[in-house]
């Protein structure tokens, strides 16, 4: 069964003013339980608005959202329970930190859920380790930490709620490449440990390519496509047309193909590129011999 399902979801900002803007336009989609989904699209394509529907922070102008088959704006649904089920990490989450210590800040979500002390303690220690926060840092003031560390604290704060669906809005924005890979790795680790569904919004095709099993491409408030990662990159040309840069390796392979070399083009990680080239060379070696 799909864990998130939307039907003709539409959202318009500032209805009835000159600033009216439809940010999500007639989106119908189903996200399978346990999926690792990358969401990509141009600035202003409606990604952030769309994901804020999934935990009921934004009420759709029209259309429906089902979480676990349940209409979240239905009569008997408590929206707070939906938020415990679907955890959302905002863009630049470090700006939401407020407690005196890192420990307390991570505890905020689990506490709101009404969990017992020991369970909260266990979860804090577990997630802190998962996101690579040292034990000594737990009792420091979060404002003493570096930007990257603060980001980890904020992500841990949502992970500690152990939501069934974890959504992250550009968790790697403004980090160096190493920090980026590390955080993405930790999110993947969380996905595997908890068997939860993870949605990740990103601007970087490279990141999404490395990370996600499926990709949702947004374009001008609409879903452009939602497919398995390799299938999406087979459509490199269309993606370029709507102004999205495909990973550099994919571009290289497309060029190779254009210049008459018979090689596959659904290559989107350097790892796989290496394998493909070696295979190709081996094959050519054989046919030459």
């Amino acid at each position: 069964m799909s864990v998130i399902k939307t039907e003709d979801l539409t959202y318009t900002y500032s209805i009835g003013t000159p600033f009216e803007k439809t940010a999500v336009d007639n989106v119908s989609l189903e996200i399978e339980e346990g999926a690792l989904v990358g969401i990509i699209g141009h600035t202003g394509s409606g990604k952030s608005t769309l994901i804020q529907h999934f935990n009921g922070l934004v009420k759709p102008t029209s259309g429906k959202i089902y979480i676990d088959g349940e209409d979240i704006w239905g009569k008997d649904v408590k929206i707070r329970d939906v938020r415990f089920k679907v955890g959302l990490v905002f863009q630049y989450p470090e700006y939401q930190i407020f407690e005196e210590t890192v420990y307390k800040d991570i505890a905020f979500g689990p506490k709101n859920m009404g969990l017992p002390e020991e369970e909260i303690d266990r979860r804090i220690k577990e997630t802190a380790e998962l996101v690579g926060l040292h034990k000594d840092n737990l009792y420091k003031s979060p404002f003493e930490l570096s930007g990257g560390q603060k980001r980890r604290v904020a992500i841990a704060g949502v992970m500690a709620m152990e939501p069934k669906v974890l959504i992250l809005d550009e968790p790697t924005a403004g980090l160096d490449p190493k920090g980026r890979d590390k955080i993405l790795g930790q999110i993947k680790e969380y996905h595997q440990q908890k068997k939860s569904t993870v949605l990740l919004v990103s601007h970087s095709m490279e990141d999404v390519a490395k990370f996600a099993d499926k990709i949702l491409v947004m374009n001008k408030a609409k879903v452009f496509c939602y497919e398995d990662t390799p299938d999406v990159f087979k459509r490199a040309e269309e993606l370029t047309q709507i102004g999205l840069a495909v990973p550099q390796v994919t571009r290289v392979f497309n060029r190779l193909r254009q210049s008459g070399i018979d090689i596959r083009t659904d290559v989107y990680t350097t790892e796989f590129a290496r394998k493909t080239i070696l295979e190709y060379l081996a094959k050519r070696g054989e046919s030459n011999a």
């Binding site: 922070l57 939401q96 905020f108 709101n112 704060g157 949502v158």
Partner: peptide
Amino acid sequence: SAQKARGA
């Protein structure tokens, strides 16, 4: 919104 997402 961010705090509401954490159950505030």
